[in-house]
Design a protein around this nucleic acid. Structure first.
Length: 878
RNA sequence: GCGAAAGUGGCGGAAUUGGCAGACGCACCAGACUUAGGAUCUGGCGCCGUGAGGCGUGGGGGUUCGAGUCCCCCCUUUCGCACCA
């Protein structure tokens, strides 16, 4: 063992030892409990960043702890390797996306290996390889056969920068998810869709089974996104279609509040509604209406409903008949009623809906109260000051004919039944979530395995011809889709009739790749199926998934969907892929900016000045490290300076995993200082304790010195604490604090130790070994090195990273005396020292015998005494 | 606007069930060792006060023998949703 700690040297050595001994390779072993620890796979952008290091340090610490506590741990890594940047790089460098991608993968793999993560690299996958993406194609064919995949003409979100269509989820708020400054355009295209609607109920309902294992806010975001609303569709007859020459005689609305139908003041249809088209075509539309509709149609959905936009509308001149009370209601069109949700038409009930209230007030439409609060004594015709919208038992129907007096839920049920009976309505559930548009007009993605035949229509590529490989010689310097312009790819004979046909030239959304990648890890070289169901049954579902909150909706909803599809294909038997989800916080740093040179990297700021021009660098707020603001720290540089162990230790110590973490150079130095401190004390003792071959049982605590007993107590208390911190709570930061305390205790003991006392030496050996073992999840390299030293030089056959976690002995952890705080009237008034095994009565006696306490109570009258066993005494006095 | 989470020393954070607030670390201060230290070691370090003592977990109220923790009101920050009928 070297006297000095040289991190990079030992890190290289230990990484090599682990690789040679294949210590992180995991195989199915029915005799052992298994644990699947998964971290979100990175996009191979070229270099790993601190966010990756944090994410993977958390997963690695958990994996190591699980391994050491007896689990067979699956801990794999791979690459989300399809996507636009590779195509852009290919254009820029006039090369190929696969070249760029694999260079990046190689560089990033080397970086990850340098951090020393315990991955089973045999299982590595890259989604851009035909071995992987053929199974995307296989899934699509199965889904096509089951009717889960279909084509339709649809208005899609189009990003001009990506030059492709986007899924609904990728165009939230009207902007491209990759280009936040680029509004999406709407284009009409024929596209492939996955029938999410068939799973919408399950996707929502199964979220309940994830309670406790997933962060509540992720569940909320998903519930929001799926957006189920149960209600009814109701047909209103149109009264005066004859005069206007319209063909349509019914207007169908969607409502969640059929119980308020007696309070409807008007009908409102979206400006895109077919009725409007018809009315305009008939020539009976007013100029005002035509102008309004034209204006609205030229306005995007986002702008129409943007914050602060006032509700606007125009009457169509048509009237509808309320099927419940025969009332004639004017039909309007308005900006806030949207096409694409429900039926694109509503009944407006101003007394019981905020939006309708605002609208009807503005246009002087009648406001009739039809629900009152159960205990309200207000007259039924009192003016409505604000809409009453509660949908529960707190509401009773009024002014509603035969339904008056029913509670809201009763009325919803019975009035829906009435509509069904009368043939003018039905219960209906709507979802905000849409079918998943998976077609992309890009070239660096999985080709869709379908052939368009003029005779046979759409024909799936026969499974024995998979994969449909991407050509290597695509031309990316084109405005169109590169695949469509590659004749060798496009032209093909129809598998059914043999005539000339065309391949589908779209590729799949890359979220397909990440929807099932972790199933592939369990059986990554299978050539018959995506994975062997028997192997998957052993490893999956994932026990712990760790990644960023940014995937709360997109990736995590797609992968839940994919799991249900795989279940229905018979590959797996469970409903949810991930039992526990940890969303780790971001790695942040203050930004710095120069008037002249814009954003500055921390290495470009010297003494608060821009290093290029010497102007003051303006320090901005702390935010997520990002390339654009240059507030990044390069993991490689940090590893060069401090070693990987220090970087990992800092990341796990500085904040609990789910919170944001601010990079702090001084605190990193502190982590490094701590490891040096551990190194020094192990160095000092390693030779002497490696010779101590004594069994625990040979020392009864009573024979040991007080100092040895105290050290052993601290050792075992630490084992208990850290097992709970890592194993139960995943609070790695408090675990580090516990290890630092143990280290401090060892240093204290070091001052008092009697080298000739076997008990002392045993306690020291035990403490050092436990410390080194418990460091292994955090800082595996130094732990491994110190472990070897403690075991005696030359005996390098075992590995601390797969050794048994130190055993906890409750007897040894127990204190033999306690310091009990004493309160008088709830205020701290002193402490008494008592034996650990004291009962309440004896504790009380000890307190009342204490001179200080006696003096404080003095003449006062004791009302009562509260004894919290072995923790605290509170004396209440008058 | 709606919903969620959070607010604790100069800083990051700890306090697992209502029971010693500030563990552990960073920064800082003093000292030791040193040619030197940005190494290491020792000690100090919530605020006010010379002191005894008092105050203290965003603010205000409450429950309790006892509240950072539970309840009510308010403020601030962050995140998510935002005319979805």
């Amino acid at each position: 063992m070297n006297e000095k700690y040289f991190p990079t040297e030992i890190e290289e050595r230990q990484q090599q030892r682990w690789a040679e001994a294949k210590v992180f390779e995991a195989n199915v072993d029915e005799s052992r409990p298994h644990f699947y620890c998964l971290e979100m796979l990175p996009y191979p952008s070229g270099r790993i960043h601190m966010g990756h290091v944090r994410n993977y340090s958390i997963g690695d610490a958990l994996s190591a702890y699980k391994r050491m506590t007896g689990y067979n741990v699956l801990h794999p890594m791979g690459w989300d390797a399809f996507g636009m940047p590779a195509e852009n790089a290919a254009i820029k460098n006039n090369s190929r996306p696969d070249t760029w991608t694999f260079e990046n993968i190689n560089a990033m793999r080397a970086q990850l290996q340098r951090v020393g993560f315990s991955y089973d690299w045999r299982r590595e996958i890259a989604s851009c390889t035909p071995e992987y993406y053929r199974w995307n194609q296989w899934f699509f064919i199965q889904m096509f056969k089951k009717g889960l995949l279909y084509r339709k003409n649809a208005t899609v979100n189009w990003c001009v920068k990506c030059n492709t269509s986007l899924a609904n989820e990728q165009a939230e708020g009207g902007f491209c998810w990759r280009h936040e400054d680029t509004p999406v355009e709407l284009r009409e295209l024929e596209q492939w869709f996955i029938r999410v609607s068939k799973y919408a109920d399950q996707l929502l309902d199964d979220l309940d089974t994830l309670e406790g294992g997933w962060p509540e806010r992720v569940l909320t975001m998903q519930r929001n996104w799926i957006g189920r609303s149960k209600g009814a569709e109701v047909d209103f007859a149109i009264d005066n279609t004859i005069e206007t020459g319209c063909e349509t005689h019914l207007i169908r609305i969607f409502t969640t509040r059929i119980d308020t139908i007696y309070g409807a003041s008007c009908m409102i249809v979206a400006p895109e509604h077919a009725l409007i088209d018809e009315l305009i075509a008939s020539g009976k539309a007013s100029d005002e209406l035509k102008a309004f509709v034209e204006k609205q149609r030229a306005t995007s959905k986002e702008d129409r409903i943007a914050e602060g936009t006032e509700k606007e509308g125009v009457s169509t001149g048509l009237f509808a008949i309320n099927p419940f009370n025969g009332k004639k209601l004017p039909i309007w069109t308005a900006n806030f009623v949207l096409t694409g949700y429900g039926t694109g038409a509503i009944m407006a009930v101003p007394a019981h809906d905020e939006r309708d209230f605002e609208f009807c007030k503005k246009y002087d439409l009648p406001i009739v109260r039809v629900i009152k609060m159960t205990d309200s004594t207000e007259p039924h015709d009192a003016p409505v000051e604000a809409p009453f919208t509660a949908k529960d038992e707190s509401g009773l129907l009024i002014n509603s004919g035969e339904w008056s007096g029913k509670t809201v839920p009763e009325a919803i049920a019975t009035m829906t039944a009435k509509a069904v009976e009368g043939g003018f309505g039905a219960a209906q559930t709507n979802f905000k979530i849409r079918d998943w548009g998976v077609s992309r007009q890009r070239a660096w993605g999985t080709p869709l395995p379908f052939i368009h035949c003029p005779t046979c229509g759409i024909v799936p590529v026969p499974e024995d011809q998979l994969p449909v490989e991407l050509p290597k010689d695509l031309n990316f310097n084109t405005q169109g889709a590169p695949l469509a312009e590659h004749a060798g790819f496009v032209n093909v004979n129809c598998p059914t009739c043999g005539n000339a046909a065309r391949r589908d030239t779209d590729t799949m959304d890359t979220f397909v790749d990440s929807s099932w990648y972790y199933f592939r890890y369990v059986d990554p070289h299978n050539t018959e199926l995506p994975f062997d169901p028997k192997v998957a049954a052993y490893w999956t579902p994932v026990d712990q998934y760790i990644g960023g909150i940014e995937h709360a909706v997109l990736h995590l909803i797609y992968t839940r969907l994919w799991t249900k599809i795989q279940r229905d294909l018979g590959l797996i038997t469970f409903d949810e892929p991930v039992k526990n989800l940890l969303t780790q916080g971001m790695v942040c740093l203050a930004t710095a900016r120069c008037e002249e040179h814009d954003w500055l990297n921390p290495t470009e700021v010297l003494d608060g000045k821009c290093k290029f021009c010497g102007r003051d660098a303006k320090i901005g707020r702390t935010e997520k490290m990002s390339k654009s603001k240059k507030n990044t720290i390069d993991p490689d540089e940090m590893i060069n300076t401090f070693g990987a162990d220090t970087v990992r230790l800092f990341m796990l110590f500085a904040a609990p995993p789910e919170k944001d973490l601010e990079w702090d150079d001084s605190a990193v130095e502190g982590a490094s200082r701590y490891l040096n401190r551990v190194w020094r004390i192990v160095y000092k003792w390693h030779e002497k304790v490696s010779g101590v071959g004594v069994q625990v049982s040979e020392f009864s605590p009573s024979e040991s010195s007080d100092a040895a007993r105290a050290l052993r107590r601290k050792t075992h208390q630490t084992i208990q604490r850290i097992s709970n911190d890592i194993g139960q709570r995943m609070n790695f930061n408090t675990g580090v604090a516990a290890l630092m305390e143990l280290t401090n205790a060892i240093y204290d003991f070091d001052k008092k130790v009697d080298e000739n006392n076997a008990g002392d030496m045993f306690a020291l050996k035990e403490a050092l070994e436990a410390l080194v073992k418990m460091l292994a999840p955090y800082t595996p390299h130094i732990a491994e090195e110190l472990w070897a030293a403690l075991r005696g030089e030359g005996g390098h056959t075992d590995f601390v990273v797969v050794s048994a976690w130190p055993a906890f002995d409750a007897e040894l952890a127990k204190a033999d005396e306690l310091e009990i705080p004493v309160q008088i009237n709830g205020k701290m008034s002193g402490r008494v020292i008592v034996a650990a095994e004291i009962d309440d009565e004896a504790l009380k006696q000890a307190v009342f015998n204490d001179e200080k306490i006696k003096a404080k109570i003095a003449e006062r009258q004791i009302v009562k005494t509260i004894v919290v066993p072995k923790r605290l005494v509170n004396i209440v006095v008058k």
